[in-house]
Write a protein that binds this DNA or RNA. Structure first.
Lengths: 354, 354
DNA sequence: CTGTTAGCGCATTCAT
DNA sequence: ATGAATGCGCTAACAG
């Protein structure tokens, strides 16, 4: 019923091994033979049996890309860039040659699902795994992750981090691309302070996430350097990285500290919610309250006024992670590269008017 | 080096067949035996060899979800919802039981890549494939798709469409969930006409996409019903489904037809660009020009003014597609279900002031 | 450059 | 309810 490699071999009058060789292209084959084989492949409409070849070769062409939230462009941009480097351009025939199958897996931010996906990828003998976005700081989960990643690496799976700080005790990770969240956050808050703000609220991300902590630390560094520490509790609110959370947290912040003249959000999406909360309170942006975000997602420039934020080169980072995962690029020294974050000053921040 | 099912069998003092049976859970096994086996699995930290079991069973636990643009929340929301139904909740152990591996594949809107992914999934003997978003109307590509899908279905892969019109001549597709793009677009334009608009520009999506065509047709139906047809060429502009395109197209539209009092965009992302273009020309929204979008993505309510648009239940549709792909839900009668689109009237549309 | 020979690790008959 | 035997389709030595 289903056509196998042996059928192709018979039709092309060669041995199965030869067919395998032309299909995988890693071996010298006479071009006349190759043509004969390819013709047989087309005539028979043959498609390689992936499981069989993965079993025999003890490795598959699957590459997993783990993301926390697939509906968030932050991850979508990185994943898309990585995938475009991994999947290859395709040859236009739709026939699929030696391409890898780059697939993205949505953990939803759940540590259990993260581990489950890793196990599933391990089960498939994935060629590589790219982990994007911040990590959870729970020690138990970190240990479980380190153990799992070690096992994957052991089995030959290449591990790459993208926008995630390197694991402390594991050399299983081939390369870690990490964003300068702390520095970016510091420069953003310095910008606000330079504008004259003194009471600055901070709508942070969820607790126990490295991204949350690093950005918050950068913010507080800047505050402390200006002698503005001391009221962190009133000025900080935590919540998920989504719009609704930004709205709620900002409402609460404005209630508790009505004298703030600026609100810094954990990311652009949260900042959008913050803007809405500020407006709903009858305050103008930036005249009454400045608002700033983080990431510089595509929609940020379209906010009204345009959102001051910190640009992260998500596409470039994702593409590089993809290349690293494919072994097409040599890892940075020490396996770790820090990626700069650039302050984007726009209309949503201005000097306080009172 | 790597621990196999035979190792587990030896440790549990049972035959390999028994281990296979408890792991797949489809067979009666004495519970004492089962426990012994599971203990051995944990002790040995055994992970099933996916390729081997797929080869033996002639089917894999891979489920592919194809999207046109992974960085677009339109697709991210659907894909995430589908994935959550497919991947299962996980058992919290990270051990991975009988779960499917739901993976999303980014075609970037390229027909070649779409076919390539399908071939790759065919090669993996995928259990199911979900195709999201509008299709390309190029006959050659449609034929190639139909052929490929037929082959997949033939090999036992379940095919589900989500937000894509059913293929005319194929019964390979188990179920097609299609959005009422035409009806939604019609109601949106009727809303504008009811407000008093007569000169309405339309920033359409890329040519040859079903989504583009259906939305445009709905718009024109409404225009024609009000006797407003006749200047389609001046009032229509095509471009990709992105922000920059919306900006450029709207600039051009306003230049060519400065008397328009409303602009309808192909989707919310394009509408954002349209808003920027309107403002850059010194016009106010909605006083001088009304703007409307389509999809009701999360950010649309945060636009200023909030965007009038047509809501598509993306999450619900994606979840249903996921269930359909898993065989957890019976297909709609005829295999086709049309999903309603709801008009959301918000601040970006108002009666024309001149 | 090409053919021959062995498994890869597991699911599934068929027995018991 | 469990064990023994067979083959899924392919790649990778090893020869030639």
């Amino acid at each position: 019923m289903t056509v196998t490699l042996a059928d192709v071999a018979a039709r092309a009058r060669v041995s199965p091994a030869t067919v395998s060789r032309v299909l995988n292209g890693n071996y010298p084959v006479a071009s006349s033979t190759r043509e004969r084989v390819l013709r047989a492949v087309d005539e028979l409409d043959y498609v390689l049996n992936g499981p069989a070849s993965s079993l025999a070769a003890a490795t598959s062409d699957l590459v997993g890309i783990l993301v926390n939230d697939i509906a968030d462009p932050f991850f979508g941009i990185m994943a898309g860039a990585a995938q475009s480097e991994i999947g290859g351009p395709g040859d236009g025939s739709g026939r699929a040659g030696g391409e890898k199958l780059a697939v993205v897996c949505n953990t939803g931010g759940s540590p259990e699902r993260e581990l489950t996906y890793l196990t599933l990828l391990q089960r498939q003998r994935a060629a590589a795994v790219v982990l994007t976005g911040g990590a959870l700081e729970d020690p138990a989960h970190q240990a479980a992750m380190a153990a799992k990643l070690a096992k994957l690496a052991d089995a030959g799976t290449r591990i790459v981090f993208c926008g995630r700080p390197p694991l402390p005790d594991t050399d299983a990770v081939a390369a870690a691309l990490t964003f300068d969240n702390r520095g970016g956050a510091r420069r953003l808050t310095e910008h606000l302070i330079a504008l004259g703000h003194r009471r600055i609220g901070y709508v942070a991300g969820p607790l126990e996430r490295t991204t949350t902590r690093h950005r918050l630390e950068g913010h507080r560094e800047a505050m402390a350097a200006a002698g503005l520490q001391g009221d962190e509790e009133n000025l900080t609110e935590h919540g998920p990285y989504d719009r609704g959370s930004g709205y709620d947290a900002t409402r609460e912040l404005l209630r508790r500290a009505p004298d703030v003249t600026a609100v810094v959000a954990a990311n652009d999406t949260v900042a959008l919610g913050a803007c809405a909360a500020v407006r709903d309170r009858g305050l103008r942006i930036p005249e009454d309250v400045s608002v700033a975000g983080f990431d510089d997602l595509p929609f940020s420039v379209d906010a009204v006024p345009a959102l001051t934020t910190v640009r992260l080169p998500l596409f470039e980072a994702g593409a590089r992670a993809g290349r690293l995962a494919m072994g097409k690029e040599t890892p940075p020294p020490g396996g770790i590269a820090t990626i700069d974050a650039e302050l984007m000053e726009r209309g949503s921040t201005a000097p306080p008017s009172h």
